[in-house]
């Protein structure tokens, strides 16, 4: 330890595939914060988020062979693993009993995309610039992983409209990021 090696993405992936623990340590130091942030936006609870983060990095370590450079950047691949792990956690039995009840499927509950205790950074900061309606759709579909059909039913909007609005929210997101 002690030596701080830096890697470009290709070197990093190659080192991870060799099961190089130092590279893994670097990967964690570099990306854990960003992924933790995404997990927290889905899961909220800090303890649960830590567990999920650990799962995510174990998965990255084990599944690095499956990462395909031609389909996108390493971060994108990890981000998807993180999102899926976080959403899976919210769908698990223990979680739903202990944590917030998903308001969407309660029917009557008025949904607000505000989450308690969240500071504005990262994606949240960008999302804050979207219109309420767009933010809601991104939150439901991206952070909570609902299908378009489920959203259409819960918000009582035609499916086609949900699709169009989500697509436009996403293009909006891209221009905000640039």
């Amino acid at each position: 330890m002690g030596t701080t090696q830096t890697y470009d993405e290709r070197e990093l992936v190659a080192a991870l595939r060799r099961k190089d623990e130092q590279a893994f340590s670097y990967l964690y130091d570099h990306y854990a914060g960003a992924l933790y942030n995404v997990v927290k936006q889905v899961v909220v609870d800090t303890d649960v988020s830590s567990d999920v983060l650990q799962e995510i990095f174990v998965n990255i370590w084990r599944k690095i062979e499956q990462y395909d450079e031609s389909k996108g950047r390493l971060f994108t691949w990890m981000l998807n693993i993180a999102r899926n792990a976080a959403i899976d956690k919210t769908r698990s039995k223990g979680f739903q009993q202990s944590s917030r009840v998903l308001p969407l499927l309660d029917g009557e509950t008025v949904y607000t995309s505000e989450r308690p205790g969240m500071d504005d950074y990262g994606l949240k900061k960008v999302l804050g610039k979207l219109k309420d309606e767009q933010r809601l759709l991104i939150d439901l579909s991206y952070f909570q992983g609902y299908t378009h059909e489920q959203i259409a039913k819960a918000l009582d909007i035609p499916l086609g409209t949900v699709k169009t609005r989500i697509r436009s929210a996403l293009t909006q997101l891209r221009s905000l990021l640039q």
């Binding site: 914060g33 960003a34 950047r73 990021l177």
Partner: peptide, 11 residues
């Protein structure tokens, strides 16, 4: 990636 990496709090 740039947006998400900004000011991300450490776990």
């Amino acid at each position: 990636e740039t947006a998400l990496m900004q000011e991300a709090p450490a776990p």
